[in-house]
């Protein structure tokens, strides 16, 4: 599983009702830890959904480990997992145990095998007492942890994280970070905050639906931060897109 995931993107464009979200991206990556930075509305989340195969590109191709995941959903189950920004948008079932076991059964595990793997993952996180817990009674941070466990249990080769730390308090964020650093598969981490990406090898900067810069964090972050701080002094927040 420690195999590095290969992401190949060629002429990728994505439009929603004539609105260009991503425009002419090309990229080839094979790194254990990839960060994606950019502003709100730059197309980062759409990029995440495309990589995870949740949506298909309007133009161009995207392949992960040489598979078209938007088409081949069966293969996608083992290749890629995605952690949504808002756990409420990810959790389907009412109890922690059911939520974790669901993905495993979707991967083809029998009911008893899924239950066993579910107990395993809870044990790994030292949270065995959460099995029967109702999601509705959990705090926001705990819900984040449930979504993480549900996806990690499926052991995808590539784990896509869409602003996984948004709205988390400092200790919760530190704990989530620790769990993620231990992950054996590849990570593609989308964030606006370079501080989240200390342990990352390669950084993609997306701006207005295009790749602005790709490189090591030493190459990308100084330019990115400078641009962000410069923009902060202007008031382009008033500009409407589309």
């Amino acid at each position: 599983m420690a195999k590095v995931s290969q992401i190949d993107i060629r002429d990728l464009s994505y439009t929603i009702e004539d609105k260009q979200i991503l425009d002419g991206m090309s990229l080839s990556l094979a790194e254990q830890r990839v960060g994606v930075v950019g502003r709100n509305g730059s197309g980062k989340s759409t990029f995440a959904r495309l990589v995870a195969g949740l949506v298909a590109p309007t133009k161009g191709t995207i392949r992960v480990n040489d598979l078209n995941l938007a088409k081949d959903r069966r293969a996608a189950m083992g290749e890629v997992g995605i952690l949504f920004q808002n756990p409420e948008h990810q959790i389907i079932f009412p109890t922690v145990g059911e939520e974790i076991a669901f993905g495993l059964q979707q991967q083809g595990a029998s009911k008893s095998a899924a239950t066993e793997a579910m107990l395993d993952i809870l044990d790994q996180f030292s949270l065995s007492h959460w099995k029967e817990a109702y999601i509705a009674t959990l705090s926001q941070g705990q819900k984040h942890l449930v979504t993480l466990m549900s996806v990690v249990a499926m052991k995808p080769a590539l784990l896509v994280l869409d602003e996984p730390f948004a709205g988390l308090d400092i200790p919760t964020k530190a704990q989530m970070k620790r769990y993620l650093n231990l992950y054996e598969g590849s990570l593609l981490h989308i964030t606006h905050d370079p501080g989240d990406l200390e342990a990352y090898d390669s950084i993609i900067w997306i701006d207005q639906g295009r790749i602005q810069n790709v490189g090591s964090k030493e190459e990308v972050f100084p330019v990115y931060l400078e641009a962000m701080n410069r923009l902060g002094e202007h008031d382009d927040l008033a500009d409407l897109s589309g």
């Binding site: 959904r49 995870a52 949740l54 959903r73 069966r74 996608a76 189950m77 997992g81 995605i82 949504f84 948008h89 990810q90 959790i91 389907i92 669901f102 993905g103 979707q106 991967q107 549900s150 499926m154």
Partner: peptide, 8 residues
């Protein structure tokens, strides 16, 4: 989308 992410 949550369903699709885990196999639908």
């Amino acid at each position: 989308e949550a369903l699709r992410a885990r196999g639908g």
